[in-house]
C-alpha cells in the first residue's frame, strides 16, 4: 500500500468532526474530495495520524442563494457547482473558474472547500475567492469566525485555518452588474496553470467603482494586484487602457521559475492573459 498508515474516522455531523479535530489538532487531516490529499498521501508528502473524512456530513454540502450572498458549503463538489442553476444565475464566473479545475473525473469528487483550504498557488478557486473578496467561515468546537479571503491565504499551501478548525462555507457577494472573468494558460486542459487571472470590475454609472484582480500560478500564493486595481478607480469603461492595466497587473506579481515555466515566460504570458480577460469583460455587458 502506498499511503503511510493512518487512522480513519468518518463523522456523520459537523459537531463530531470538530470534536475529533479538537482532540487531535494538527495530527488530524480533514479529508474533503481527496483529489490532492490522496495523491499527497500516495507520495508520502502528507503523513497525518488520523484522517477525518468529511464526506458523510450533509450539512457541509449545498449552495444557498441568500439575499446577502451566494453561500457555497465547503464540501460542495466541483461538479455540483458546474451544474448549479443558482451558480449559473448569480455567479456564472464561479462555474467558469471551476470548469478549469482538474478533469471531469476529479471534478466528480473534488470540492470547492477542499481546493480553497489546500491553497495551491496555481489553483483556480483560491484566486477566484480572493478576487471576489469572498468570506470564509471557519468553525471549531468552540465557535465560528469569518475571515476575508485577503486574510485567509498566508503563503504556499498555507491558510488562516487552524488545526482544530474546518472551513465550512465560502460566501461570494457579487455586486449587481459586476463584470467577472477568469482564464488561464496551461500546457494541456486540466494541468495546473502556468498563469491564471481573475478580474472583477464593479461598475457604477459607466465608471469603475472597484476592481478586484487575482493571479494564480504567479507567486507562491494566490495574489491580488493592488496597484493595477487602484489605477482603475473612477476610470470610465471607454477610457480603460487594457494594455497598460495588464502590464501593471503583472508588475504586481513575483512569479517563480519551475519545471512548468520560467518566471519570464509567466510574466509575458500573464500580460497576454490579462489583456484577453479584460478585453472580454469590456466587450461584454455583464458577467
Amino acid at each position: 500500500m502506498k499511503p503511510p498508515p493512518f487512522d480513519y474516522v468518518a463523522p456523520a455531523t459537523l459537531e463530531a468532526a470538530l470534536e475529533t479535530l479538537a482532540q487531535y489538532g494538527d495530527d488530524a487531516q480533514p479529508l474533503a474530495g481527496g483529489q490532492s490529499l490522496a495523491a499527497m498521501l500516495a507520495l508520502r508528502v502528507a503523513r497525518p495520524s488520523v484522517l477525518v473524512d468529511l464526506n458523510r456530513i450533509p450539512e457541509l454540502t449545498g449552495i444557498d442563494d441568500a439575499a446577502d450572498g451566494l453561500r457555497v458549503g465547503a464540501m460542495t463538489r466541483q461538479v455540483a457547482v458546474l451544474n448549479s442553476e443558482k451558480v449559473r444565475a448569480r455567479l456564472p464566473s464561479l462555474a467558469a473558474a471551476t470548469s478549469l479545475v482538474g478533469h471531469f473525473q476529479t471534478r466528480n469528487r473534488g470540492t470547492i472547500g477542499g481546493s480553497v483550504s489546500l491553497a495551491d498557488p496555481a489553483a483556480e478557486n483560491p484566486a477566484f475567492a480572493l478576487a471576489m473578496n469572498a468570506e470564509m467561515e471557519l468553525r471549531n468546537a468552540k465557535g465560528s469566525r469569518k475571515v476575508a479571503a485577503v486574510n485567509f491565504f498566508d503563503g504556499p499551501y498555507t491558510t488562516a485555518r487552524q488545526g482544530d478548525e474546518l472551513l465550512t462555507s465560502i460566501t461570494y457577494r457579487p455586486s449587481p452588474g459586476a463584470r467577472i472573468g477568469v482564464d488561464e494558460i496551461a500546457r494541456r486542459p486540466g494541468d495546473f496553470a502556468m498563469t491564471g487571472f481573475v478580474a472583477r470590475l464593479n461598475v457604477k454609472d459607466g465608471k469603475i467603482d472597484e476592481a478586484g484582480f487575482a493571479w494564480f500560478g504567479m507567486a507562491s500564493q494566490p495574489l491580488r494586484a493592488p496597484s493595477a486595481e487602484a489605477s482603475l478607480k473612477g476610470v470610465a469603461l471607454k477610457d480603460i487602457d487594457i494594455r497598460a492595466v495588464a502590464h501593471a497587473a503583472v508588475d504586481d506579481t513575483d512569479p517563480n521559475d519551475d519545471h512548468h515555466a520560467s518566471a519570464e515566460y509567466r510574466k509575458k504570458a500573464g500580460r497576454v492573459l490579462a489583456e484577453r480577460v479584460l478585453t472580454k469583460l469590456l466587450m461584454s455587458e455583464a458577467a
Binding site: 480513519y8 468518518a10 495523491a39 469528487r109
Partner: peptide, 20 residues
C-alpha cells in the same frame, strides 16, 4: 477510473473504507 454511485472517479484517489 471506476464508477462509484453513478459517477466516474479515480479509484487511486479514494480509500476503500470510503465506499462503505
Amino acid at each position: 477510473t471506476v464508477i462509484v454511485d453513478g459517477v466516474a472517479v479515480r479509484s487511486c484517489l479514494m480509500f476503500a473504507v470510503q465506499t462503505d
